[in-house]
Design a protein around this nucleic acid. Sequence first.
DNA 1: TTGAATTTCAAACAAGCGTTTGATACGCTT
DNA 2: AAGCGTATCAAACGCTTGTTTGAAATTCAA
Lengths: 211, 211
Amino acid sequence: MSVVAKSASEQTRERLLDAAREVFSQCGFQGATVREICRRADANVAAVNYHFGGKDALLAEALNFAPLRALQEDNVTADACPRVRLRLFIHGFLRMLLDEKNASAQCQIMARELADPTPALDKIVREAIAPLHTYLGTVVREIVGATVSEADCRRGVHSIVGQCMYYRHSQPVLQRLRPKLNYTPKEIEAIAQHIAEFSLAGLAQLAITSR
Amino acid sequence: MSVVAKSASEQTRERLLDAAREVFSQCGFQGATVREICRRADANVAAVNYHFGGKDALLAEALNFAPLRALQEDNVTADACPRVRLRLFIHGFLRMLLDEKNASAQCQIMARELADPTPALDKIVREAIAPLHTYLGTVVREIVGATVSEADCRRGVHSIVGQCMYYRHSQPVLQRLRPKLNYTPKEIEAIAQHIAEFSLAGLAQLAITSR
DNA sequence: TTGAATTTCAAACAAGCGTTTGATACGCTT
DNA sequence: AAGCGTATCAAACGCTTGTTTGAAATTCAA
């Protein structure tokens, strides 16, 4: 057996994982049903329990934080000043959250679960969100300087992440407010531009107030 | 029968509504169960269907946008400049979202449903969120002036609302990031201060860029 | 090719859900 | 007190959920 050719069993596993990422990110953990996942994967209802042991374990395996980690690593090695790095990060983060055609869309499962604790939330926070906040904290710190308090620094991170998440999380609402809304790459870039502009000014204000 | 003394039936109705607001805002529409609502209301499982006709109709009656409307009306009549009115609004809005002891906590049901469309979401958007965005749009417009595009103005509103919602919506995550987190009135005021400061600077930047 | 191990499948299971039912208890007018 | 409409109740219904089962199909080494 070559490296690329997978056994039938492995193929089923991967089809299940792909379908799971799709359904989990669209419907959330509770809303997703094992039957729907198996239907999309052209597999039997029992396949999830046979290959993974249960719905919980399937979610745990479906999670993939690599794209988010890659975004951070690309950003930290980018040869640019903190402000530009923040711009780049916001743009990449929004692409991850909003662009369904993006390969990194796997992280959308994560966003779906933030408000609704599932057995996997502890893992998500530990391995993805905490590092994200820590990293953004260092970038924000570089921008605002040493005079800003730790609490203000953290709230600055929250302001940035909160703005990004809003477009993902409140999509059903925004869709109803503006039915023509569509997250094209162009629209995503415009949103990223806005959030970066808005936030850099906000951070600058933090630095001023703390003087 | 006097105005204050309610019949036994009306008392049951009100106990059900109170319990429903509690459970819906804590668990969401799907997560909430009729049995749990009735348990907290000391009522029979059949009570919801007898008094309201079903779980959907109970949610529709449990919704109460009066506090949110009152916040807008108080704000529009406040004798203050747009910037101060924005500060006041953000503070009141956050109290509504985060302070469980607040009487206006009924609007927390609303926040719970934003990401997860239910039969009532259309009503929520039409009667609560759309007016909220419209009103905030006028305040933001007063602050940034006429040179800023309609799209930038709308994104400014999103930035403000997004920051506020983040603290409510991502509470399970923030709780895990900082276990000591507690939304005391003092903490809420500090958050409101931060968001107002941050956003006013962001809005000012919008005005500068559009020149 | 054969035979054991792995994988798939239709079917059924137990538990939970919203809802319905028919009997019972209650409140109120007569 | 009797009668009647309303409200409550335990029980059950129909449905969906995640999971289990045991037989059938497939895979793969010997």
